[in-house]
């Protein structure tokens, strides 16, 4: 659907990663000593109650923020110690983000939103590829529409397209189905999985949803900033993803 060469995924390694926020109530460890190794091409679900650090963890992996402690490596590159300009390049070339609310640019049409990602990498025929991708997602007619003219489900599909058009080797999705109904949720997940499979990218996805979590290769549960369960370690004893 995206076409082109299979780039293959990247491996992600987290080593003693913590992220501490200073709040007026005292420092809070949103992420607390997380060790994780994700081989290339794997799809991973991160579950856990809200506010327990999942989004922060994803930001860290996505090189949007720096950890207070520990190391993050993507494809054996020490991302957490790169300069900001270097990390910009990493985000641009290697990573694709999908957010909970679509977060499309409101002043760009569907195709422009997607082309922007390509333009960031200096791709020449950005529009053509974007239109193609939209077509395969069944959104060909909506290419020129603006986000406020699309339904929630349509917007999220455009967001997914935006996240994958540049064939990233690591796809990060933060509750991509959070705002969608059941039907649309599963559609989006299937889309992500299909794209991931085609490109061979590594997929890390945060979700609340049991049904969604079950569709991925691997699952970890996060609680109070720590990994409390890992399907790789103990495939049977996976606690409830929505843990009380």
């Amino acid at each position: 659907m995206i076409g082109g060469v299979m780039n293959g995924g990247v491996s992600v390694t987290l080593d003693g990663v913590s992220k501490r926020f200073a709040t007026a109530a005292g420092p809070v460890d949103a992420v607390n000593g997380v060790d994780l190794e994700i081989p290339a091409g794997v799809s991973l679900a991160i579950t856990g109650p809200s506010g327990c650090g999942k989004s922060t963890l994803l930001s860290l992996v996505g090189a949007l923020e720096r950890p207070s402690q520990g190391r993050i490596e993507i494809a054996d590159r020490h991302v957490s110690e790169m300069t900001e300009p270097e990390r910009v390049v990493v985000r641009r070339e290697l990573i694709g983000f999908v957010f909970q609310s679509d977060n499309l640019q409101p002043f760009l049409s569907a195709v422009e939103n997607i082309s922007l990602q390509l333009a960031l990498s200096g791709v020449a025929d950005a529009y053509e590829r974007s239109l193609e991708l939209l077509g395969t997602l069944g959104l060909g007619d909506s290419a020129g529409k603006f986000p406020d003219q699309l339904s929630g489900g349509e917007r999220q599909r455009v967001a997914v397209a935006r996240a994958v058009v540049h064939r990233p080797r690591l796809i990060l999705a933060d509750e991509p189905t959070g705002a969608l109904d059941v039907k649309n949720s599963l559609a989006v997940i299937d889309l992500l999985r299909a794209v991931q499979a085609e490109v061979g990218a590594t997929l890390i996805l945060i979700t609340h949803d049991e049904a969604v979590a079950q569709r991925l290769d691997r699952r970890i549960a996060l609680l109070d900033g720590r990994v409390v369960a890992d399907s790789d370690a103990d495939p049977e004893r996976m606690p409830d993803p929505t843990n009380a």
Binding site: G62, L64, E84, P85, V88, V89, R91, R92, E93, I95, F97, F99, N103, Q105, P106, L116, Q117, L120, S121, R162
Partner: peptide, 14 residues
């Protein structure tokens, strides 16, 4: 601000 954060996430330089 949300637009700008998303742009940064997409790889727009500072």
């Amino acid at each position: 601000r949300r637009e700008y954060v998303v742009l940064r996430a997409q790889g727009l330089s500072a």
